[in-house]
Nucleic acid binder design. Structure first.
Lengths: 354, 354
DNA sequence: ATTGACAATGCAACCGGTTGCACCTATAAT
DNA sequence: ATTATAGGTGCAACCGGTTGCATTGTCAAT
């Protein structure tokens, strides 16, 4: 691989001149520039990005750590869509993504630390904001530019940059949709309870229920850890409540909603005649379940894009003022939700079936 | 950030000694090692990966270029599953992935070239093997370690390393499954016809049909470019063949199969009573379509893992002998395929319905 | 003709590690 | 006592760019 010195020799200039031609940060006479470019061309020269990084202390690279051991993570549309948006933004700024796997939430921090302290990236997009692992605090200690995808703990609300779906609004729309169909006994199946997103949504759920004057049975709240079996199990745990059986389930992602559908079908409950089911994410899958899922469209690609845009602005402009965005979500009504069936009506229909 | 010289000063040794302690490639007395490690610890020292890369000419990074402008690419399970496997293998070898977007197949080469010529990666995993763009030839010119995920052109079959699903076997299993159900008029809906995978599968389709003594109507072969609308359109184009209407469709991925299901439902064709439909990939989605898709399980995560394993072996062992793997696929029978209905039987059933 | 300003380029130190070679010392072999 | 051997460490050049400062040349203003 040709170096800057090879080019310099061939063009009969000093290496620094070659550097200046390529970085474009100085005035170079047209004649010299031509000579240098010709020489570079004939040698197939391309500046070594590693050497550039070493001397400029900039990598034009954004880091990201992905928990590759969680298989469910790759079934949901969250990760691929986020990637799409991130790649898009990075591409436009001529940045690349450097990605490391990790085995869990503790390891995530240690991988981030490795990437940043070894100067492999200029900043990082972080996907986890958990109650049990204070990733954010660690990152602040590291003094590393980063943007959180998700919701920060309240104490860091103003201190850091973040981009999130408007979970409260999303959940509000979901629960209000169910209430408007006449449901009163609505179950909430969250993801990982140690996650801010889960808590955010749960709070919104409780708010809306309270605002509507509906009492919440604690048994209606459960967690499915964002995967299909989780949704299935949640339903199992909620059955046998008699007249307190929920008539509608709201799940914090579509995968869990699919698990709920499976559980419902095993229990002989028809959707939406006997119970209504809602998911979240509007993943590709949700159009094709039986029945198709009513869900919430969450613009993950946009979130990823905005996160990277924000991060790059911060990096290149030394613009330390943190900012944040809440992306709107939209209700997508399909066939898995319907009007509630009153107890006596249901009894009638059961008699009719028999 | 502390450097090797800071540590050296504190531990009262020469910087090269610190380097040796961290690289572990030389014998260092226990006493010195302790002193150095203590000093490093108290300074929070971590070797700068960029500097290491510059002097060792190794990055411990694998490159990859993703066509981020193709939205459908992120709906299928191919990409996320591949990523999962790649991350897994990279993690085990303490490598990372560097990823760039690209806007199309030409751009892909230019991005690969940028990554490699600017020394940002030690090797690259390439996903595209197309008939119209000779990526492989370009890569060979670059003299870059790489592994192809997919099938190489015949002329480079032995010359490069690649990992692919056994497409021939997969397609054979699919078509034989349909034939065993009595189908004679079987349509093939491929992906992008300029892709080797598509051609491979088509050849296998033709082989099996021929071997079974079945004549192929050229109209039964169409391409859906791996997305849902593509599958839908393919069916549209095939209708109106009268007695030559296919009774079964084999699609090269599940997304297209979903499109076929949609077209069928619009045409009032019941699946599998009137026509059978098969997909490929066994994506998460395929379990949840109506009816659930018979499909072929393709182990993309394993393929990604193997590709990275192979590449890393090549890089670290200077092991230039190319090798390749065909990963087995498995037939997954669900409800979208069924026995063919004979013409007179069908007529009867139609009469019965009326 | 002199001075000042600025454009164009060279010089050399620097970014933060690595590594071949030389040197010193302690131990083992003769 | 002498020499060979090997472990442990220092020295300095090197990886391939960048950049502050110095120098030279050119042209306009005085």
């Amino acid at each position: 691989m040709a170096t800057i010195r090879d080019v310099a020799r061939k063009a009969d200039v000093h290496p620094s001149t070659v550097s200046r031609v390529f970085s474009g940060k100085a005035s170079i006479s047209t004649a010299t520039r031509r000579r240098v470019l010709d020489a570079a061309d004939s040698l197939g020269f391309q500046p070594n990005a590693i050497a550039v990084s070493l001397s400029t202390q900039k990598t034009k690279t954004i880091g990201m750590v992905v928990p590759h051991v969680f298989e469910g993570f790759f079934d949901d549309s969250f990760f691929p869509q986020l990637m799409r948006g991130m790649l898009d933004a990075a591409y436009q700024h001529e940045f690349r993504l450097i990605i490391s796997g990790c085995q869990g939430h503790q390891d995530e921090i240690s991988q981030i630390r490795q990437i940043m302290q070894s100067s492999q990236a200029d900043g990082i997009v972080v996907m986890s904001s958990r109650l049990d692992v204070d990733t954010i605090e660690r990152l602040l200690e590291l003094d590393t530019p980063f943007v959180l995808v998700g919701h920060p703990p309240k104490k860091q609300f103003e201190a850091i940059s973040w981009v999130d779906a408007d979970n409260r609004l999303a959940t509000r729309q979901a629960i209000e949709h169910l209430i408007s169909l006449g449901h009163r006994k609505i179950a909430y199946v969250g993801g990982d309870p140690k996650t801010f997103t889960t808590r955010e949504r749960q709070l919104a759920y409780e708010d809306v229920m309270n605002a509507a004057g509906l009492k919440i049975n604690p048994k209606w709240i459960d967690y499915g850890y964002f995967d299909e079996p989780g949704g299935y199990t949640a339903v199992q745990r909620m059955k046998g409540l008699g007249s307190e059986n929920p008539t509608a389930f709201y799940a914090a992602n579509d995968l869990m909603a699919v698990g709920i559908l499976r559980a419902a079908s095993e229990l002989g409950l028809r959707v939406p005649e006997d119970i209504s089911v809602m998911g979240t994410n509007n993943s590709y899958l949700s159009q094709h379940t039986t029945p198709p899922l009513t869900t919430i469209q969450v613009p993950y690609a946009e979130i990823g894009k905005k996160a990277v845009d924000l991060l790059i602005t911060q990096i290149t402009h030394q613009d330390k003022a943190p900012s944040n965005y809440l992306e709107d979500c939209q209700l997508v009504v399909r066939a898995s939700t319907g009007p509630v069936v009153q107890a006596h009506t249901r009894a009638q229909s059961e008699r009719a079936q028999a």
